[in-house]
Simulated scan of single mutants.
Amino acid sequence: MKDLLPDICDYYAQDIRFLPLTLFDYGCHSPFWGQIVTLRCFEDNSLVRDILSTAGDGKVLFIDGHGSCRRALLGDQLALLAIKNNWQGVIVNGAIRDVATLAQLPLGIKALAACPIKTDKRQMGENNVVLNIADTLIYPNDYIYADLNGIILTNTALDLSVLKTES
Protein backbone atom coordinates (compact mmCIF):
# COMPACT_ATOMS: atom_id res chain seq x y z
CA MET A 1 0.00 0.00 0.00
CA LYS A 2 1.79 3.12 -1.25
CA ASP A 3 -0.79 5.70 -0.06
CA LEU A 4 -1.09 4.64 3.55
CA LEU A 5 -1.70 8.02 5.21
CA PRO A 6 -4.98 8.93 3.49
CA ASP A 7 -6.48 5.62 4.64
CA ILE A 8 -5.14 6.09 8.18
CA CYS A 9 -6.54 9.62 8.29
CA ASP A 10 -9.94 8.43 7.10
CA TYR A 11 -10.19 5.51 9.52
CA TYR A 12 -8.41 6.98 12.55
CA ALA A 13 -9.33 10.68 12.16
CA GLN A 14 -9.74 11.24 15.92
CA ASP A 15 -6.46 9.53 16.83
CA ILE A 16 -3.92 11.27 14.61
CA ARG A 17 -1.85 14.46 14.62
CA PHE A 18 -0.67 15.76 11.25
CA LEU A 19 2.82 17.25 11.02
CA PRO A 20 2.42 20.30 8.71
CA LEU A 21 6.03 20.32 7.55
CA THR A 22 7.08 19.86 3.95
CA LEU A 23 9.84 17.25 3.80
CA PHE A 24 11.33 15.52 0.78
CA ASP A 25 11.54 11.73 0.48
CA TYR A 26 15.10 10.47 0.00
CA GLY A 27 14.95 6.76 0.85
CA CYS A 28 13.36 4.04 -1.28
CA HIS A 29 11.29 2.62 1.59
CA SER A 30 7.84 4.20 1.61
CA PRO A 31 5.54 4.03 3.43
CA PHE A 32 7.31 3.48 6.73
CA TRP A 33 6.27 3.67 10.37
CA GLY A 34 7.36 2.80 13.87
CA GLN A 35 7.81 3.97 17.42
CA ILE A 36 9.55 7.34 17.68
CA VAL A 37 13.01 7.95 19.10
CA THR A 38 13.75 11.69 19.30
CA LEU A 39 16.99 13.62 19.04
CA ARG A 40 17.63 17.35 19.09
CA CYS A 41 21.01 18.45 17.73
CA PHE A 42 22.45 21.36 15.77
CA GLU A 43 24.96 20.75 12.97
CA ASP A 44 26.49 17.84 14.93
CA ASN A 45 25.54 14.26 14.06
CA SER A 46 27.70 12.38 16.56
CA LEU A 47 24.63 11.43 18.63
CA VAL A 48 22.87 10.30 15.44
CA ARG A 49 25.64 7.71 15.02
CA ASP A 50 25.35 6.69 18.67
CA ILE A 51 21.59 6.12 18.42
CA LEU A 52 21.67 4.34 15.04
CA SER A 53 24.37 2.04 16.43
CA THR A 54 21.78 0.57 18.80
CA ALA A 55 19.05 -1.94 17.96
CA GLY A 56 16.27 -0.06 16.20
CA ASP A 57 13.70 -2.85 16.51
CA GLY A 58 11.54 -1.24 13.81
CA LYS A 59 11.68 2.28 15.24
CA VAL A 60 11.95 5.65 13.51
CA LEU A 61 14.52 8.25 14.54
CA PHE A 62 13.20 11.81 14.40
CA ILE A 63 16.05 14.34 14.38
CA ASP A 64 15.36 17.99 15.06
CA GLY A 65 18.28 19.78 13.47
CA HIS A 66 16.57 23.13 14.09
CA GLY A 67 15.82 23.35 10.36
CA SER A 68 19.48 24.02 9.53
CA CYS A 69 20.51 23.01 6.02
CA ARG A 70 24.15 24.09 6.37
CA ARG A 71 25.37 20.63 7.49
CA ALA A 72 24.07 17.13 6.71
CA LEU A 73 22.91 15.17 9.75
CA LEU A 74 22.53 11.89 7.83
CA GLY A 75 24.53 10.35 5.00
CA ASP A 76 25.06 6.97 3.38
CA GLN A 77 27.22 5.49 6.18
CA LEU A 78 24.72 6.34 8.92
CA ALA A 79 21.84 5.09 6.76
CA LEU A 80 23.64 1.76 6.27
CA LEU A 81 24.14 1.59 10.04
CA ALA A 82 20.40 2.19 10.53
CA ILE A 83 19.53 -0.63 8.14
CA LYS A 84 22.00 -2.99 9.82
CA ASN A 85 20.37 -2.28 13.19
CA ASN A 86 16.76 -2.67 11.98
CA TRP A 87 15.60 0.97 12.01
CA GLN A 88 12.55 1.62 9.80
CA GLY A 89 13.32 5.22 9.02
CA VAL A 90 14.98 8.51 9.80
CA ILE A 91 13.24 11.89 9.61
CA VAL A 92 15.41 14.99 9.67
CA ASN A 93 14.27 18.54 10.34
CA GLY A 94 17.45 19.60 8.56
CA ALA A 95 19.68 18.33 5.78
CA ILE A 96 21.02 14.97 4.58
CA ARG A 97 23.66 14.05 1.98
CA ASP A 98 24.62 11.22 -0.39
CA VAL A 99 21.16 11.43 -1.94
CA ALA A 100 21.82 9.14 -4.92
CA THR A 101 22.95 6.36 -2.58
CA LEU A 102 20.15 6.97 -0.08
CA ALA A 103 17.59 6.61 -2.88
CA GLN A 104 18.74 2.99 -3.33
CA LEU A 105 18.58 1.97 0.32
CA PRO A 106 15.66 0.11 1.96
CA LEU A 107 15.12 2.77 4.59
CA GLY A 108 12.48 5.46 4.98
CA ILE A 109 14.18 8.86 4.86
CA LYS A 110 12.60 12.30 4.91
CA ALA A 111 14.43 15.62 5.25
CA LEU A 112 14.14 19.31 4.48
CA ALA A 113 16.98 19.40 1.95
CA ALA A 114 20.32 18.02 0.84
CA CYS A 115 23.72 19.50 1.70
CA PRO A 116 27.09 17.91 0.83
CA ILE A 117 28.89 19.28 3.91
CA LYS A 118 29.46 16.98 6.91
CA THR A 119 28.80 18.06 10.48
CA ASP A 120 31.11 18.86 13.33
CA LYS A 121 31.58 16.11 15.91
CA ARG A 122 31.13 17.62 19.37
CA GLN A 123 28.89 14.97 21.02
CA MET A 124 26.26 17.65 21.57
CA GLY A 125 22.51 17.20 21.58
CA GLU A 126 19.62 15.78 23.58
CA ASN A 127 17.84 12.51 23.00
CA ASN A 128 14.46 11.28 24.22
CA VAL A 129 13.10 14.82 24.51
CA VAL A 130 9.79 16.26 23.36
CA LEU A 131 10.27 18.11 20.07
CA ASN A 132 8.18 21.05 18.90
CA ILE A 133 8.27 21.18 15.11
CA ALA A 134 5.83 23.25 13.05
CA ASP A 135 3.76 23.81 16.22
CA THR A 136 3.38 20.05 16.59
CA LEU A 137 4.63 18.17 19.64
CA ILE A 138 6.57 15.00 18.89
CA TYR A 139 6.91 12.73 21.90
CA PRO A 140 9.43 9.92 22.37
CA ASN A 141 7.71 6.52 22.21
CA ASP A 142 4.72 7.81 20.25
CA TYR A 143 4.21 6.36 16.76
CA ILE A 144 4.92 7.92 13.39
CA TYR A 145 3.54 6.99 9.98
CA ALA A 146 5.08 8.45 6.82
CA ASP A 147 4.60 8.17 3.08
CA LEU A 148 4.65 10.49 0.06
CA ASN A 149 1.57 12.25 1.49
CA GLY A 150 3.38 13.46 4.61
CA ILE A 151 3.68 12.47 8.25
CA ILE A 152 1.15 11.70 10.96
CA LEU A 153 1.69 10.95 14.64
CA THR A 154 -0.29 8.88 17.14
CA ASN A 155 -0.08 8.12 20.85
CA THR A 156 -0.33 4.37 20.30
CA ALA A 157 0.37 1.91 17.51
CA LEU A 158 -2.46 1.63 14.97
CA ASP A 159 -3.95 -1.61 13.70
CA LEU A 160 -3.26 -1.26 9.98
CA SER A 161 -5.03 -4.53 9.13
CA VAL A 162 -8.39 -2.71 9.32
CA LEU A 163 -7.48 -0.47 6.37
CA LYS A 164 -8.41 -1.20 2.78
CA THR A 165 -5.66 -3.09 0.97
CA GLU A 166 -5.55 -1.22 -2.32
CA SER A 167 -4.67 2.45 -2.82
Rank of each mutant, 00 (worst) to 15 (best):
K2H: 01
K2F: 00
D3S: 03
L4E: 03
P6Q: 04
D7N: 05
D7Y: 00
D10V: 00
I16P: 04
I16H: 06
L19F: 12
P20G: 08
L21T: 03
L21K: 11
L21D: 01
F24R: 13
F24V: 10
D25F: 10
Y26Q: 12
G27W: 01
P31K: 00
F32G: 00
Q35A: 09
Q35S: 14
Q35W: 07
Q35R: 06
I36T: 01
T38Y: 03
L39H: 02
R40Q: 07
C41L: 04
C41S: 15
F42E: 03
E43T: 14
S46M: 08
S46I: 00
R49Q: 12
R49G: 11
I51T: 10
L52K: 11
S53K: 13
S53A: 15
G56P: 02
D57G: 14
K59Y: 01
V60P: 05
L61D: 00
I63E: 00
D64C: 04
G65Y: 05
G65N: 12
H66Q: 08
S68Q: 06
S68D: 08
R70I: 13
R70Y: 11
R71N: 13
L73A: 05
L73P: 00
L73H: 05
L74V: 10
G75Y: 05
D76Q: 09
D76S: 10
Q77G: 13
Q77I: 13
L78A: 10
A79H: 02
A79Q: 08
I83E: 02
I83Q: 03
N85K: 11
N86H: 15
W87H: 07
G89I: 04
I91R: 03
I91Q: 06
N93W: 06
N93R: 05
N93C: 10
G94Y: 00
G94P: 01
A95D: 07
I96A: 12
D98H: 14
D98G: 15
V99R: 10
T101G: 09
T101V: 11
Q104K: 15
Q104M: 13
L105D: 12
G108N: 03
G108R: 07
I109K: 05
I109H: 08
K110A: 09
A111H: 04
A113E: 09
A114G: 10
A114N: 12
C115H: 08
P116K: 08
I117Q: 11
K118S: 12
K118L: 13
K118H: 15
T119R: 01
T119G: 06
K121T: 10
K121H: 13
R122L: 14
R122Y: 09
M124K: 09
M124Q: 06
G125A: 02
E126S: 02
N127R: 11
V129P: 01
L131C: 04
L131N: 12
N132V: 06
I133Q: 08
D135E: 11
T136W: 09
T136H: 04
L137W: 09
I138N: 02
I138Y: 11
P140C: 14
N141V: 03
Y143L: 04
I144W: 03
I144N: 00
Y145M: 02
A146Q: 04
L148M: 15
N149K: 12
L153R: 05
L153E: 01
L158S: 01
D159G: 10
L160P: 04
S161V: 03
L163R: 15
K164D: 15
K164P: 13
